[in-house]
Design a protein around this nucleic acid. Structure first.
Length: 290
DNA sequence: CAAGTGCCTTTATC
DNA sequence: AGATAAAGGCACT
């Protein structure tokens, strides 16, 4: 099946899958393969056509953020020369609508890790505790359910390379599987409420909560601040803060809660209701330019 | 090649 | 409130 993209432009599949928001997509030959919920998706883009198999068109439009009015969003966030440059370079990058459970665990794994390491942890977890599905001769694994991870020993989790994250993930899996915590329902809540709820989980700080809000809960105003975004702000937006603040932030390697909130709040106010899009364009642009 | 630094941070403790 | 240390282990330089 295919979607003709004329009503969904701009869209760039490669950028959307490679910008570091999702960790389990791989390109095998001509096609991109990824597992979402219990399905293996197979996708490729030929210019103005998005071809896919194994899934219905509406799911594709939803998952790849094709329903977002990207021309409007890019116009709204293009507040200055620097982000204009990022938008120009990365036009077509969209925010995915990831599965909240998988996204939560993914970003809990992501703390203090680099992207290759995050990919390895998630691939280990899926291979060991997910369900295999074969497509085109390749074996893919669903992401393990909360029930499955709740029943997995800390030792087995640690063997996936999770380190100290294993106990937080185990604890969260238990809360989700026994119904004490409902990640899915946070989609219905406001950004503030969803964030507050996420922060009650151990292993979830401001950065992780903002990532889950943005990448899975449709809170496009969330503005996660990591080391890269901190760098962007110090290099291009320092004039929005007093010098004593930027000096302090650039000296210390980690952000205090208050520092984080200030930087994130700046992003939300300055870029507006689609600040999350601004964040992702700035993030990827900064990394691209090493 | 070795060794040091950095990593889409958070928690615990003071 | 804010500073500090610790927490896997791999990738990059």
């Amino acid at each position: 099946m295919r979607v003709f993209l004329e009503h969904f432009q701009p869209f760039n599949l490669e950028l959307t899958l490679c910008c570091g928001q999702a960790f389990r997509w791989e390109k095998l030959g001509e096609w991109w393969y990824g597992v979402v919920k219990d399905k293996v998706l197979k996708v490729k883009q030929d210019g103005g056509t998005l071809e896919f198999e194994n899934v219905n068109p509406d799911f594709v439009k939803e998952y790849f953020g094709l329903k977002d009015d990207l021309p409007l969003i890019l116009t709204e966030i293009a507040k200055d020369k620097h982000i204009e440059e990022a938008v120009k370079a990365l036009r077509g990058l969209r925010i995915l609508r990831q599965d909240p459970w998988e996204c939560l665990i993914s970003y809990m794994c992501a703390t203090y890790k680099n992207i290759p390491a995050i990919k390895r942890m998630l691939s280990n977890l899926s291979r060991k505790f997910g369900e295999p599905t074969v497509l085109d001769g390749y074996t893919f694994y669903t992401f393990p359910t909360a029930e499955k991870l709740a029943d997995t020993s800390l030792k087995e989790l640690a063997e996936c390379g999770l380190g100290y994250r294993a106990k937080y993930i185990s604890e969260t899996a238990k809360k989700v599987s026994n119904g004490e915590f409902d990640v899915e329902s946070l989609k219905k809540e406001s950004y503030e409420k969803a964030r507050e709820m996420l922060l009650t989980l151990k292993g979830v700080g401001l950065k992780v909560a903002d990532c889950v809000a943005l990448f899975a809960l449709e809170k496009l105003e969330a503005f996660p601040v990591d080391v890269w975004i901190k760098r962007v702000i110090l290099n291009h937006y320092a004039n929005h803060f007093e010098k004593s603040f930027t000096d302090k932030v650039s000296l210390k390697k980690s952000l205090t809660k208050a520092d984080y909130e200030r930087l994130s709040f700046f992003g939300r106010k300055y870029f507006g209701r689609y600040a999350g899009y601004a964040q992702e364009y700035l993030y990827h642009f900064e990394r691209m330019n090493r």
